[in-house]
Design a binder for these strands. Structure first.
Lengths: 229, 229
DNA sequence: ACCTGAACACCGTTCAAGT
DNA sequence: ACCTGAACACCGTTCAAGT
């Protein structure tokens, strides 16, 4: 796998130099797969569907990608793209906030990526650039390396969790709360029931929820950073 | 789906009352599926494998579960079990911390559940009980309903993000960092490279990282709760 | 009536036959 | 040598045939 990952990272170096006019490229394959996932979801992405779109045999794809697993890894790394440059002089708090908002924007644009990032998978260069920029945003602080890493992971986890209800149809469509129709459920889950009754769970203001959570995380970091300084 | 979810929640009420000695039950099927996932991972759980284990025809399973999707939902809800009771008199901070640690313990015990919870899926009664207890842990505070919900989601997101490297083999086995072997990578990702060089990314002290992140989140909540009071 | 085997419509990938 | 169709070993689920 080590070799695979390196190839995926720095790719293209040794591409098959000769043969057909090369009607097919890895970039095309990945782009088509992303288009399918954006339109119909990740589980509709099959080698066959991608090949159909590109008017080629299924096995032709294997000339350019190792297999489905690598294709999916490439989809994510291509779709997320390189991280925004946060090195501008604006203080760690605003830099981290921008990082978090950009991450949220990615998942909103490509909801299929959300379950994907929780799986064990090879990491690509663009994803590493996000980690690197996240760490860079905390460079001006006195946090240790391990603390900076943990801090980036807290922010990352928060973003993923906060974005999930926004991209899930069953939540937006309120099927998630169907169980609350049952009076026994309302009795058994009084706290949830209260939230449901006062409209707190309607999730009509996702951005406000996101910003609330973000400020909580940033406040927590601020205190740690203050202690370290 | 509403009906399905309600049935999944309160189940068992109207079970087929007559017929064979009922050599098969939903509980058995779910238990066997969990056993397979624990031992070999979620993708090894197939209707066929479960049926083999139970010495029955594949289609016999469909008498007790709607299909694979419902089976997986039942696996999660069964494996996570009811939430611990946090109503004891110990203050919101320790209650939330306990909630977070118990959630982490679940994912460590059943790593296959981590990618699963990020998917759009019907929610079961045990999972709702965790939400309910999480909200209950914040009952003594002056946070609004929407704020409490957002707070639980911040903690939940943090736990999932923090636990992910702990349960991922490629991270524990260090393949995750293979790309750092390339000098071009070290140049391109200086912050990540520095962490790698000083050993911060070895992830040999996962519990310390978890506790650091948890305290960050709790500190952030404390400030919000103080503001609200 | 209950149960379940055969058949179907999909997967991703191996392998050997094509050019 | 490059490319790719046929074949394989799986999926989950429908449907109709069994008891």
């Amino acid at each position: 796998m080590g070799q695979d990952v390196r190839e995926l990272l720095w790719g293209d170096a040794a591409r098959p130099p000769r043969g057909r006019p090369a009607g097919l490229s890895r970039e095309q394959i990945v782009a088509e797969a992303i288009a399918i996932a954006d339109a119909e979801g990740l589980q509709k992405v099959s080698m066959k569907r991608v090949a159909e779109r590109l008017d080629c045999g299924v096995m032709s794809l294997y000339r350019h990608v190792d297999g489905k697993e690598q294709l999916v890894a490439l989809m994510h790394d291509t779709a997320i793209g390189p991280a925004p440059d946060l090195s501008a002089d604006r203080g760690w708090r605003e830099a981290v906030a921008e990082w978090a908002r950009a991450t949220r924007a990615y998942f909103l644009a490509h909801p299929w990526a959300l379950p994907l990032v929780t799986e064990d998978r090879p990491v690509g260069p663009n994803e590493v650039s996000w980690l690197d920029q996240g760490l860079g945003a905390l460079e001006s602080t006195r946090l240790s390396g391990a603390e900076r890493l943990a801090a980036v992971m807290v922010v990352n986890g928060f973003v993923r969790g906060g974005v999930q209800p926004e991209v899930q149809e069953s939540y937006a469509g309120a099927q998630w709360f169907d169980f609350m129709a049952d009076p026994r459920a309302r009795e058994r889950f009084p706290n949830t029931s209260a939230l449901f009754a006062d409209g707190s769970m309607s999730y009509e203001t996702p951005e406000l929820s996101f910003e609330f959570g973000l400020q909580v995380v940033l406040d927590g970091l601020e205190r740690r950073i203050g202690d370290a300084a």
